[in-house]
């Protein structure tokens, strides 16, 4: 547990009181920061927290973790597994911090689940979102991996539209989380999984992603791909990180873009391998 008391030595950490979005900050300051990668940009609040395609991510001061990791990947071939790698890291961070001394362990009545490719759920509500924005250069990829985790929100802190679909660590454990502590744990775990990605240990990443999304396995889901909505059975995640869906005709198809609608299944990954 000692190593989690500090950030990894190789990581430059930039702590901001406020910014529009930590992803934006890193992208705007790329020229100044590119020789210092990997970096972590973390802010106490975001004035314009973003999700995919400009959706809003609620980012009130000290309520959540708003962090962005900037790093290089040597090859674009790693990109399809990066969202899963980030998702796995967030789940393991949440698992770790809810098992710190003083927190209950085996008595936990909740689990965290992965909704492909990188939404993190707790009790079927969203607790974390990930926004990855990569810039592809000729020989390498600059990755801006933004992670938001709801830590200290009460129900009142969420706007009406999110009250029934979002949750926070505080709401499920009854305890507040220290942002810096969560950032330190997340940094260690994320770079440890990133090393596996860089070392082509893809099998381990896929196995873990399938394990954390086990609560959805063989269950009907609704899948959105742009304007197209499909009802299908979730069969798992394939070796390339794609989602395997079985349609009405019983044929399986692999998708690499799209989104699973909110689900109401109880997360139980313990029995799933």
């Amino acid at each position: 547990m000692k190593k989690y008391n500090m950030y990894p030595g190789f990581l430059e950490v930039i702590e901001l009181e406020s910014c529009d979005s930590t992803n934006n900050y890193l992208k705007k300051n790329y020229e100044q920061l590119k020789s210092r990668l990997p970096v972590l940009i973390t802010a106490a609040q975001q004035t314009r927290g973003r999700g995919r395609r400009d959706r809003t991510w609620q980012s009130q001061k000290y309520l959540g973790l708003y962090s962005t990791f900037g790093f290089y990947l040597e090859s674009g071939s790693k990109l399809p597994l990066l969202p899963l790698t980030a998702g796995i890291s967030v789940i393991e961070t949440l698992n770790k911090i809810t098992r710190f001394p003083g927190n209950s362990d085996g008595g936990r009545d909740f689990e965290f689940g992965l909704k492909w490719p990188n939404d993190i759920l707790a009790g079927n509500r969203k607790i974390s979102g990930i926004l990855i924005e990569n810039t592809m250069f000729k020989e390498k990829v600059f990755s801006v991996t933004g992670i938001g985790i709801n830590l200290n929100h009460t129900t009142e802190n969420f706007p009406g539209s999110l009250k029934d679909t979002a949750t926070s660590l505080r709401l499920i454990t009854g305890k507040t989380g220290k942002i810096e502590k969560v950032n330190k744990v997340l940094s260690h775990i994320f770079f440890s999984w990133l090393a596996k990605l860089k070392n082509n240990e893809h099998k381990e990443i896929i196995e873990q992603a399938n394990r954390y999304s086990g609560f959805l396995k063989d269950r009907p889901i609704t899948f959105h791909q742009d304007d197209k909505i499909t009802s299908a059975i979730f069969r798992g995640i394939n070796n390339d990180g794609g989602i395997i869906l079985e349609g009405r005709q019983g044929t399986e198809k692999i998708y690499y873009s799209g989104e699973i609608s909110p689900v109401s299944y109880v997360i139980n990954n313990k029995d799933k391998k």
Binding site: R52, G76, L79, P80, L82, P83, L84, P117, N118, I130, L131, I132, E133, N134, T135, M136, F137, K138, V141, G241, G242, Y256, S257, E259
Partner: peptide, 13 residues
């Protein structure tokens, strides 16, 4: 080009 909810900016060389 968006793949698996990651947004990949494509530049011209």
């Amino acid at each position: 080009v968006e793949a698996m909810k990651s947004m990949n900016e494509i530049q011209t060389d």
